[in-house]
Simulated scan of single mutants.
Amino acid sequence: MSTGYSRILREGVWDNNVVMAQMLALCPTMAVTTSGTNGLGMGLASTAVLVVSNVLVSMIRNFVSTEVRIPVFIVLIATLVTLVDMVMNAWLHDLYKVLGLFIALIVVNCAILGRAEAFAARAGVLPSLVDGLAIGLGMTGAMTAIGLVREFLGAGTLFAQASNLLGPAFGFLEVKVPGYGGALLMILPPGAFAVLGFMLAGKRLIDARLDARAARVAPAEPADAATA
């Protein structure tokens, strides 16, 4: 993969992560991440909308005037969310009941409209697809990680009911810690804010170390460069 696509992937998954860097999509992040399964399901649904909307916006960008582009993008995203909502209701009904209204609220997720406007409306189809996939994977990873930490500390399980919510193929993900009942606080809203806060602090520390390492390995300017 070329350097350009690698950069898009890194920015979407880590540097420009929707949850951990931009602090967007916090409403579904706080509400549905009571388990890793819920976070994974919500993240994958958002990723599907992101990828398809980015591709479609890129394809029509030269045919939509500047004056009406935002309403067109919103209608397009709303249509895709409706399709995802119907698909989940038909084939993933248990997960659909758990996520509830938050599936429909993907329409108002600033990250999706923001990527359509800031990237897909100005780039080709393939880069837009990669950008949507990267942003979606970053969001999915963050939601799943928060859900797993809250679920482990709050209930002593990992990916509980994955086979029921996502299908029998995901049954291997289910883990139960014997002898640990969990702390209810971590499943409640305060637990979500606490876990998010610690994860944000951890990301800042990792970024600081990566920047320091990059500064150490950067080649020093030649001594005669300043006198040239």
Score class of each variant (00 low, 15 high):
219 P>L: 06
206 I>G: 04
136 G>L: 05
142 A>G: 06
200 L>D: 02
168 P>V: 06
146 I>S: 12
163 S>A: 15
192 A>K: 07
139 M>S: 11
215 A>E: 14
190 P>F: 07
176 K>P: 00
188 L>P: 03
219 P>S: 03
148 L>W: 11
150 R>G: 07
138 G>R: 03
168 P>R: 14
206 I>T: 06
146 I>D: 13
155 A>R: 12
158 L>N: 00
136 G>P: 01
142 A>F: 06
194 A>Y: 08
192 A>D: 08
180 Y>V: 12
154 G>A: 04
178 P>E: 14
187 I>D: 02
145 A>W: 04
199 M>Y: 02
145 A>E: 13
147 G>V: 07
196 L>V: 15
164 N>T: 03
136 G>W: 07
216 R>P: 00
217 V>G: 07
192 A>Y: 04
207 D>H: 07
205 L>R: 13
182 G>T: 06
192 A>V: 12
209 R>Y: 12
151 E>F: 00
178 P>K: 09
162 A>V: 03
160 A>F: 02
189 P>W: 12
207 D>K: 07
194 A>C: 07
170 F>I: 10
164 N>P: 00
188 L>E: 13
143 M>K: 04
204 R>K: 11
180 Y>P: 07
139 M>H: 04
137 L>I: 15
135 I>D: 04
155 A>F: 00
162 A>T: 11
169 A>G: 03
166 L>I: 06
165 L>E: 15
189 P>Y: 14
214 A>F: 07
